[in-house]
Amino acid sequence: MRFLLLVLLLCGARWVVAQPNELHVALWVAEAKTARPGSDGERQNGGLYQFNAQLAREICRRMKARCVMENVLFGEILPGVEARLFDLGFGNYLRTPEREKRVAFSESIWNSSSRLLGRVANKRRLSARFGPDVALDGLRDVRLGGIAESRQMAYLESIAGARGLTLSKARTMAEAIALLRDGEVDYCLLPMLTAYELLRHETPGIFEFSGPPLLDHGLGGSVHIALAKDSEALRLAVNQAILAMRADGTYHRLLHQNFPFSLE
């Protein structure tokens, strides 16, 4: 009887010790219908979203943390992290001074740039006004779209007044594509990888990129995971996990599983 009690006590102690920290992880989904707790955003989106989910799981495993994944819209991630609703935000965030005032950032997970995306037919029409290679710097009095709360939209808002731009905000990438398809905007300024994620499912010849890829004004550079400002220990643990994944090749295996090209 004593032995049985001892075994039960040890098992209980082990359960208490082995209970991992629980982390709430926000994953960015492309479509609003998948943005709900428990929905299978990974399966529905694939590609970038599957990569983010796999990356989150691997980081949690290496930190010995139990992670609760939640699919949310892009515009909800940063406020959620700021309000401590989420511990980690996988929103593929470019690091900007404004965002750094609100949240902390992990090590870089990949690099990104922004580019105009538009319909082929629109480009032919606008080429008559702005030349054969339509670039953002030369656009005047056109309708542009972007993802709400994104760095691209923030930049467009900063130049819209001076250039007579009419802006439309989309909650998701799918809505941005819909804006283009429906002719409500001439171009959308989007992060390249995210745009590719949706365009690979579109019929070829309808959409195309225009103008040079953009890095300045916070439109390109390294992409990070968002964390709460005062969670330094968590940030260090996440960084350590990312560095370890890079060192043992896990990171690159995840990349090659999800993309036909390098994100770095």
Binding site: N111, Y196, F209, P213, L215, S262
Partner: peptide, 22 residues
Amino acid sequence: PQSRQQAMFVVMLVASHPSVLE
């Protein structure tokens, strides 16, 4: 045409990648 368009998108992506632009 689909695979050609797919390859063209990747070309654009790679040409737009910061590591290339830098």
